[in-house]
Write a protein that binds this DNA or RNA. Structure first.
Lengths: 240, 240
DNA sequence: CGCCATCATTGATCCGGATCAAACGGGCCG
DNA sequence: CGGCCCGTTTGATCCGGATCAATGATGGCG
């Protein structure tokens, strides 16, 4: 208030309160850049299943996932669906410099977004090479993950696939157990249907394999969602 | 010869004779940049099946594919293999700014490479934003293709998968027929085994589905390799 | 509090693709 | 020219996961 000029380069209040402030692309932005973004950014909340962007639509804005899990999917002409990726906080949604969306984007869990107009972010990318590098890195990591998943879809059986997915979620959402680094606890942000669509399986098969892993003591499940992995290394072995 | 200084900014002879001179990343390079690259580039030829880079090795150079087709693959602990991508001329091999290779790289057909030391290319990328953009675009396109293939692996049956692969190769390697834009002719750069590893199927199933498509008149095959697609739209329909 | 809608589990049966096995064909080398 | 080797095709059988069907939990709402 005393120095308006100085204020413009302070970290905006919304950013200071944001839980991805020091993660993802935001970690490499200066206070002034955060201020520029915050000025045109819009925060939105979404319920599970809510469509965020539809395939083939024009791309007009990017969005940072600040909380929750987002599904990227494509549908075949015959109606069958394939989830082609999951995005967790603090990932950025939107194909960099793309003109249109090639995937459907949908909230898997409760999701908070920080939407940024296309031109604002691209302007920022153009002037900040570190930011550009960071986003390039994320794209390349997405590519690695997509290729990993191709192996899962092409060469693993149902049991290994389910184990692979539990592992993936455990790594992104899991909290390590007290006194036991191998123990992991988390809430599944996906329905059985979402899991099936990501794994290239049916709901029934996913359910059966989870039951099997449960009977074998590899996982404990409560309320269909609360998951405990007593031994992550054991799960890793089963994932192939 | 008369003006050595001027010569350094002329397009190098090897580049002038190169069939990807005006494609891929080389299209956006100045004569001086081409000269810089050519000075440290090394051209190599490889027979089908020859390993070009092995998984988890240190990444020390990039390579432009100037001719032929290259397989990117990963192997599971149980020995099963999954091809996670194909690279055609004029694609660049090597994960940009990566420190190690996460995939096996192997010649599928006869392959010609133009190898460029890691630091030389990265230096060029650092000073040429257009080049950086171009390579970013290729990475994003690779990501799109990987996701497309995830749909193929997760949600298509054997017939659709084989049709999808024929379509993919037809689009990258095919020559359109005279007087008939729907007709395409090409040589398969892959063995049945390679195809199976890309499609998440067995050799036998690939062979059976090709036979089936042949009996239906969707493709004509001679010598296992020479392929004629009388109607590309028909194939597109079958690919799902 | 109890009904209903939704999601998940479990069971029975079927089928597409894997596996096992054999024959085929073309190219290369002796 | 003949024989072998490798990649491919074709056939017979098996099995994992899809499909069809029914039951069981859970959370929202009147």
């Amino acid at each position: 208030m005393s120095q308006p000029i100085a204020l413009s380069s302070e970290v905006p209040a919304t950013c200071r309160a944001c839980n991805v402030r020091h993660a993802g692309m935001c970690a490499v932005l200066t206070a002034a850049e955060l201020a520029t973004m915050a000025r045109s950014a819009r925060r939105t909340q979404h319920a599970p299943g809510e469509p965020l962007v539809v395939e083939d639509s024009k791309l007009t804005s990017y969005a940072n996932v600040t909380d929750g899990v987002v599904k990227l999917s494509r549908v075949l002409r015959n109606g069958r669906q394939q989830v082609v990726g999951l995005q967790f906080a603090p990932d950025l949604l939107g194909r960099l410099f793309g003109r249109e969306n090639l995937v459907n984007v949908e909230a898997a869990s409760e999701v908070d977004l920080c939407r940024i107009p296309k031109d604002v972010l691209e302007q920022l990318v153009a002037t900040n090479p570190v930011l550009k590098q960071r986003l390039l890195d994320q794209s390349l990591q997405d590519l690695d993950e997509a290729r990993d998943w191709m192996v899962t879809l092409g060469r693993k059986d149902a049991r290994q696939r389910v184990a692979s997915l539990l592992l993936l979620v455990a790594r992104r959402c899991g909290a390590p157990g007290i006194d036991d680094p191998d123990r992991v606890v988390f809430d599944l942000p996906l329905t059985r249907s979402d899991m099936a669509d990501f794994l290239g399986l049916t709901i029934e098969t996913v359910s059966r394999q989870i039951s099997r892993l449960r009977h074998e003591g590899v996982v404990q499940v409560a309320n269909h969602r609360h998951v405990v992995i007593p031994s992550l290394p054991r799960l890793e072995t089963l994932a192939g």
